[in-house]
Design a protein around this nucleic acid. Structure first.
Lengths: 118, 118
DNA sequence: AGCGTATAGGAAGATATCTTCTTATGCAAG
DNA sequence: CTTGCATAAGAAGATATCTTCCTATACGCT
C-alpha cells in the first residue's frame, strides 16, 4: 500500500483530524490508545485499524515532525492505576500539513522524506 | 476450591518457593509476570496458571504479610521500554510460613485470617 | 455419606505501547 | 497494460498488572 507520492495516508490524516478535534474540545494532548478507540467506535467500526498500524502511523507522523510527544508523568498514571501513556500533540507543522492535505495539495519535500521509512 | 483449613494453597506455596529460589540466585525481588513465566515453563507446563489466579494469589500473600511489594522505579522501566513492574519480596513471616507449609504444619491463626477473602 | 456453599480457578477483557512477521495493494516503471 | 516491488496493513505476540464474571471443587457440616 505504497504512499501516493506527495500525500498523507488516510490513517495519517485521520489521526491529525482526531487530534485537532480533541484539541478543539479543550484537551491539549492525546494518546494512541484513545485514538484507537475513537477510530474503532466513532468512525469506521468495520475497519478497526489494528494497534500495529496505528502506532506505526504515529511513529511516522512524529518522525516527520507533524506530531511531538512526551511520556506522561509517572505519578499521574500511578494515581489512576494504569500504564503510562505517551502524550502526543500536533505541531504547527502538523496543522499546516493537515490543511494542505485537506486541500489536496501535495506536501513539501522535507516532510515527505521524513514520512518515508528508514 | 476452598482452602484446606490451616494450610497454604499449592499456588501460594509455589509462589513462595519460586521467590526464594530467585532470591537464592541473588536477585532480591521478583515480579508477577516473571513468576507466571517460570510456572508456565519450568514447572507445570500443562497447568499454565492464568494471570487472574496468579495475581489474586499474590494479593492474598501480600495481604497476609508473607510478601511485601513496591512499585519499580519509573526510570528503570522507562529505560528498558516496558511497563512498570510491582516488585515483591518474601518477608520473614513469609519464610517462616513456607517452612511450616513444607513441614505440613498448620499455619498460625492471624496469617490464615488475612489469607481469607474479604 | 451426601450436600450446600464458600472460595479458588480460569477465561476474558481492559489498559497501554511497541515489535515482528506476513500479506496485500496500489504505485510506478517498463 | 502488465508486472514487480516498496511499503502500509494487519495479525499476533511480548510486556505487565489487574478486574470481572462464571464455573468447579473440595471442605465442612448435617
Amino acid at each position: 500500500m505504497r504512499r501516493k507520492a506527495g500525500h498523507l495516508l488516510a490513517i495519517e490524516e485521520e489521526i491529525l483530524d482526531v487530534a485537532l478535534t480533541i484539541k478543539a474540545e479543550g484537551t491539549s494532548s492525546f494518546h494512541g490508545f484513545a485514538v484507537a478507540k475513537l477510530i474503532q467506535t466513532n468512525r469506521d467500526a468495520r475497519r478497526l485499524t489494528s494497534q500495529g498500524t496505528l502506532y506505526k502511523a504515529l511513529g511516522r507522523l512524529e518522525r516527520a515532525g507533524l506530531l511531538a510527544s512526551e511520556w506522561e508523568e509517572a505519578d499521574t498514571a500511578a494515581a489512576e492505576g494504569r500504564p503510562r501513556r505517551r502524550l502526543y500533540h500536533v505541531t504547527d507543522l502538523g496543522e499546516r500539513a493537515l490543511a494542505m492535505a485537506r486541500a489536496q495539495r501535495p506536501l513539501p519535500e522535507p516532510i515527505l522524506r521524513r514520512l518515508a521509512p528508514g
